[in-house]
Write a protein that binds this DNA or RNA. Sequence first.
DNA 1: TGAATTATACCGACTAGTTGGTATATTAAT
DNA 2: ATTAATATACCAACTAGTCGGTATAATTCA
Lengths: 212, 212
Amino acid sequence: MARPTKDLKKIPSRELLLQAATKLIRTNGYTSTTVDDLCEKAGVSKGTLFHNFTSKEELAIAAANRWSEVTSEFFKNAPYHLKKDPLERVLGYVRFRKEILRGDLPEFTCLVGTMAQEVYAKHPEINNACFASIFQHAETLAKDISEAKKLYAPRARWTPQSLAMHTQAVIQGSFIIAKASGDVNLASDSIDHLEKYIQLLFINSKLNSKNK
Amino acid sequence: MARPTKDLKKIPSRELLLQAATKLIRTNGYTSTTVDDLCEKAGVSKGTLFHNFTSKEELAIAAANRWSEVTSEFFKNAPYHLKKDPLERVLGYVRFRKEILRGDLPEFTCLVGTMAQEVYAKHPEINNACFASIFQHAETLAKDISEAKKLYAPRARWTPQSLAMHTQAVIQGSFIIAKASGDVNLASDSIDHLEKYIQLLFINSKLNSKNK
DNA sequence: TGAATTATACCGACTAGTTGGTATATTAAT
DNA sequence: ATTAATATACCAACTAGTCGGTATAATTCA
């Protein structure tokens, strides 16, 4: 007794709405994205939206949470994780972030960074979801940084957490510059500087260790 | 024959509106800031707003332009400019940016960075004004970086412009992190990393030069 | 000078359209 | 038959922007 209807089932409305929210909010921000826009983009009626989410705000929160899941999966499967040397994994991460600056701005720009900036005062719950996403992502990176530090710069005074968070700041900042200028290369250049910084941070410690 | 009425004249409505726009948009973003909010904050009627500006968008553009003027004046008068060594001026700038992270978020956060991120797709003219502001500011810094480079790292392959823009990216990114987390220290830490990067960039070049 | 004219700054009620959200109806799944 | 999912019509609040009009200042003219 096959159930072809279920197996061939189309993407559920909830998922379509989350995707629509991600696209539209990345492009135009939270406030400018209207409920009607979301419904139209998802190809779904207003009733469906409010059947799945109690409010536009809740949809935004759900989108931020889904963003966390999707991106963590995306980076988990990225090739740089295969490197055995933790420093190479850290540098691989940074290079990977540069490589994925392709296509139109809303395609590589960060949903949660965009939203956090805009809604932090009026929608603290959305803000919390955004920070959780950024923080969680930074923590994953911090693990590799921590291993690299133990290996190559055990005495350095900076913490892996702060370097991980700095990495996120640079990436978020580079998105702002890219959006403002319309020139992705500026974002790319900034990430190059970040890569160089991390290299210098470790190379220098290596030298210091040798000299002591 | 004194003219006390004129001399004691109150701040013109136009100026009040620009100040209101700066405060409100920094806090809530462009779209969430309503015309009524702006009027109320400025203590001015709607008629007055539209007498001085043709649209909310034009007010935002004017606010971005005024932001350029005010901030450039503010940094021009900052103490780090007195240093004779250009590298010290560059480092002084970075330290100064860290020092002014005081008070509530909307007090030190960047108007044009906030707006650019939000409006780049729907209000390109606002976006242009924002980029002009960021770019102009970066160019001022690039001059000092350029002098420092000639002095201490003439052969390094990075350009003063890209380092100046990177500096802006870090600062903008640190604002996002601060807003998302509600913790100014994270912004502060990120700027510390930036300072260390610039130091390493020059120290390392000095070493390279000596070794050659 | 001082009255007439004109330009500027300002006000707040109003409007046409939009907003997030609801109520009710219809359809599909079990 | 009952529940879940979707659609549509609708609403009250809000939105940016308009309009008719007033108060004040600047300019012109007698």
